[in-house]
Design a protein around this nucleic acid. Structure first.
Length: 302
DNA sequence: ATCCAGGCGGCTA
DNA sequence: TAGCCGCATGGA
């Protein structure tokens, strides 16, 4: 059988490495929205309303990635939505050189560009995922957060078994909007989180919050709009702005992972205070999102 | 057992 | 506006 193959161009290719992205993508064994099999990355995504499973591999040069459509078999699927999705997800249209140059001038970041060269800020092209994941994960340890996320996705997300693998789409807001808290609390969501998730899903499902609305806002407007949602504070708003809107100045001051990474790199006796964090991150400006992401990466093995 | 976790809302002053 | 507190539950 001949499978549909799609080339996905990569910008700033000298600063891209597919292999460098895989450790971050594989950081949790409870991940169920994509899978890593050897040097292949597999994912189901929605293309013109239809689920499509793609296998992504490195190109023969860093200037492009290769996507192969595994399902559906038969008629070709539209290429552009797949290209757009993967480009956003892996930030293939990003230009890292200015950030890499900046890391050389910042003692906190120096060395990260070499250590993880070619790693792109892995994003979330789906707005509901980018808003609800911080709600799910806030104030609990990451292991438990991934457990909750896995339950959320496998209970309420679209599922298809292709070959030996169970693929899922992130739950649609309309599905979550129709839930009651009592359907989430037995899955060990706190009552507050259950209420926040349902209310946020309703905002999206009923059109009071939309991708186009958010797309028209600048960083500060979008931050304020997100914080107006119950359960979304400054940390969650900036998380969404970083992973979904890809505002480069997004900074997650309240992030325990960032705090621990700074503590480890500077060998501080304790986590930095909020005032110290502001001092460390103030010079980052348009490099803040990448600085944060690379510091997160530094917490993983290798 | 104790402390912490990729925070947030709400209350008080 | 800033500071404190309760939350809610698993992991280490």
């Amino acid at each position: 059988m001949i499978r549909q193959k799609i080339k996905i161009p990569v910008k700033d290719a000298t600063n891209f490495s597919f292999a460098a992205c895989l450790p971050f993508l594989g950081r949790s064994d409870k991940e169920c929205l994509h899978y890593i099999q050897g040097d292949k990355l597999l994912k189901m995504l929605l293309v013109a309303g239809e689920p499509v499973v793609v296998e992504i591999t490195a190109g023969t040069t860093a200037a492009y990635l290769q996507a192969t459509v595994l399902a559906p078999a038969g008629d070709p699927v539209p290429e552009q939505p797949i290209i757009d999705y993967i480009t956003h997800w892996l930030h293939l249209d990003g230009v890292l050189q200015p950030f890499y140059d900046y890391t050389l001038t910042d003692p906190l970041l120096n060395g990260l560009a070499q250590a993880y060269h070619g790693l792109r800020l892995v994003g979330m092209p789906d707005l509901f995922e980018a808003i609800s994941w911080p709600i799910i994960g806030q104030q609990i340890n990451l292991t438990f957060a991934y457990t909750l996320r896995q339950r959320f996705i496998t209970h309420f997300g679209y599922h298809a078994r292709i070959g030996e693998t169970d693929f899922y789409l992130y739950p649609h807001p309309a599905v979550i909007a129709a839930l009651t808290p009592e359907q989430l609390t037995p899955m060990q969501f706190s009552r507050s989180k259950a209420l926040y998730l349902i209310a946020t899903a309703r905002e999206l499902a009923e059109g009071r919050l939309s991708e186009s609305q958010l797309a028209a806002m600048d960083y500060e407007e979008a931050r304020e709009r997100l914080i107006a949602l119950k359960g979304i504070g400054n940390w969650s708003a900036n998380y969404t702005l970083m992973k979904y809107r890809r505002f480069p100045q997004s900074v997650l001051l309240e992030d325990v992972g960032l705090q621990n990474a700074i503590k480890a790199r500077l060998q501080l006796p304790a986590k930095p205070t909020m005032a110290e964090l502001q001092q460390y991150t103030a010079p980052w400006k348009e490099h803040a999102a990448y600085a944060t992401f690379y510091l997160w990466r530094s917490l993983l093995p290798q």
